[in-house]
């Protein structure tokens, strides 16, 4: 599988696109083109392309012998799939109960100024980063907890950790 880092860029070369479809084909073969593997295949496509374009969806619908409407209905139903490329890097912030009580909701509000898409993804003011809510990561004692695009954890998260050129989260809090 390719690295997760390249999943968010959507203006890739044709040769790379070709490659990505090869990976998608591999997933289709693995699930023996069964219609019930639709969600699994969509997961793979989402990981490969970063979003589900109309072309990808009709390709999957054809391969699995499903109506395009069904693929579209499933893709729009689940929050894990997005139909358009998400702007910038994807950062995550835990919305678990303990993190909420330690101030994750205020942090969210501050970072996104209330701009929330219908799936609950939140865009930051500068569109270089998208902040996604995430479920509990087992770091409740150090909440609120975030995860940067490179999977680096941000303990005791602070507004500055999410803004570019912010405080290095590894440094102890002042």
């Amino acid at each position: 599988m390719p690295e997760r880092n390249d999943t968010n860029s959507h203006d890739f070369e044709p040769a790379i696109t070709e490659n990505r479809f090869k990976y998608l084909d591999r997933a289709l073969v693995k699930h023996r083109f069964r219609g019930d593997a639709l969600i699994e295949v969509l997961h793979t496509a989402q990981e490969l392309f970063g979003y589900l374009s109309e072309d990808t969806m009709s390709y999957i619908a054809e391969s699995l012998h499903l109506p395009l409407g069904k693929v579209y209905s499933v893709a729009t139903f689940y929050p894990a799939f997005s139909l358009e490329p998400l702007p910038g890097e994807i950062w995550r912030l835990c919305t678990g109960t303990t993190c909420h009580l330690r101030g994750a909701d205020l942090l969210f509000e501050f970072l996104t100024k209330g701009r929330v898409s219908h799936h609950g993804d939140r865009e930051m003011e500068d569109i270089t980063r998208t902040i996604k809510p995430s479920s509990c990561m087992g770091l409740c004692h150090a909440g609120p907890v975030g995860i940067a695009a490179d999977e680096r954890p941000i303990l005791h998260a602070h507004e500055n950790d999410f803004v570019k050129h912010g405080r290095n989260p590894r440094e102890p809090e002042p």
């Binding site: 919305t95 678990g96 109960t97 909420h100 509990c136 087992g138 409740c140």
Partner: peptide
């Protein structure tokens, strides 16, 4: 779906 539990994952 419990947003604050880690049991199954643990």
């Amino acid at each position: 779906g419990d947003p604050g539990a880690f049991v199954d994952r643990g």
